[in-house]
């Protein structure tokens, strides 16, 4: 797909632009929105790297399965641990129930 130096230059400019944007936004107080916006931009940058720089779309299906599996396992690690942290004080403090 993307295999010309010019395209990669544009991708770099895009990534750099997103970086400047996310740094700039971090300096503005958007309240609760700062967190999701920063994460979203990071995910966008990550997608660009994985799709174009790491050529995942031209890799075989097995590689794609491993990439998805990795994300899944990471979420198991984080979510199942947070399962404990979110609910730790539920017995002593029922007001914390969702």
């Amino acid at each position: 797909m993307v295999s010309s130096p010019k395209n990669f230059l544009f991708l770099f400019l895009g990534l750099a632009g997103l970086t400047l944007a996310t740094s700039g936004i971090a300096l503005i107080n958007l309240g609760g929105m700062n967190f999701p916006i920063a994460i979203l931009i990071a995910c966008l940058q990550a997608s660009i790297i994985i799709y174009y720089y790491m050529h995942i779309q031209s890799a075989e299906i097995l590689v794609k399965i491993f990439a998805v599996g990795t994300l899944l396992w990471l979420s198991i690690l984080i979510l199942l641990t947070f399962n404990d942290y979110f609910s730790r004080y539920w017995t002593t403090n029922p007001s914390l129930w969702p």
Partner: peptide
Amino acid sequence: PSLYLLGR
């Protein structure tokens, strides 16, 4: 973002 941005 984790170390430089979140929560400024």
